[in-house]
Deep mutational scan, measured.
Amino acid sequence: KFNKELSVAGREIVTLPNLNDPQKKAFIFSLWDDPSQSANLLAEAKKLNDAQAPK
C-alpha cells in the first residue's frame, strides 16, 4: 500500500510547476522518511504550489 501511495505522491510532487527543485527534493525526502504521511505531504506540497503560483 505505501509503495503505491509513495510513487503516486512522488510523481505528483515532481510535476508541481510552482515548486523549485529544493522544495520538491525536501518533500520527496520526507516521503521516503515516512511513507505513511504521503497523503498529508502531497496536500502540503499542493498548498505550497498554489501559494507560489504567479499572480
Rank of each mutant, 00 (worst) to 15 (best):
A53R: 09
E44T: 07
L6T: 07
L41P: 01
A39P: 05
Q23D: 03
D21F: 11
V8E: 13
K24S: 01
N18W: 15
W32C: 14
L41Q: 02
R11Q: 10
V14W: 15
F29W: 12
P35K: 02
Q52H: 04
L6R: 05
N20T: 15
E12G: 04
P17Q: 07
K46M: 08
P22N: 15
D33W: 10
A51M: 13
D34P: 02
E44F: 09
K24M: 03
K55Q: 11
W32L: 10
L6P: 04
N20M: 06
V8S: 13
S7N: 08
K1T: 11
A53I: 06
K47Y: 06
W32V: 06
A53W: 05
D34F: 05
A39V: 08
A45L: 01
A26Y: 14
R11V: 07
E12S: 05
K1N: 12
L6W: 09
D50S: 08
D34G: 02
Q23S: 02
A39W: 08
D34H: 06
K25G: 05
N49S: 06
L19E: 00
S38Y: 14
E5F: 11
D50I: 09
E12Y: 14
V8P: 11
K25E: 12
K4Q: 12
A45N: 01
I28P: 00
Q52L: 08
L41A: 03
L48K: 04
N40T: 14
A39K: 09
N18F: 15
P22I: 15
L6A: 14
N49R: 02
N20D: 09
I28Q: 02
D50M: 10
L6E: 04
F27R: 00
L48P: 00
D33P: 00
K47A: 13
R11D: 06
L42T: 03
S36T: 10
F27P: 00
K47G: 04
N20S: 15
A45F: 02
F2L: 11
V14K: 06
L6I: 10
E5M: 12
A9D: 04
Q37R: 07
P17H: 05
P17V: 06
S36V: 05
K47L: 09
Q23V: 03
K25D: 09
V8D: 14
D50H: 07
N20R: 09
D50K: 08
G10Y: 15
E12C: 12
P22C: 15
F27W: 00
N40E: 11
N40G: 08
K4S: 12
Q52D: 02
D33L: 15
F27I: 02
V8N: 12
K55G: 11
A43D: 07
A26V: 05
K24N: 02
V14R: 10
E12M: 12
F2P: 08
F2K: 07
T15Y: 07
N3R: 09
D33S: 14
K55M: 12
A39E: 12
A53K: 09
F2Y: 11
L31C: 06
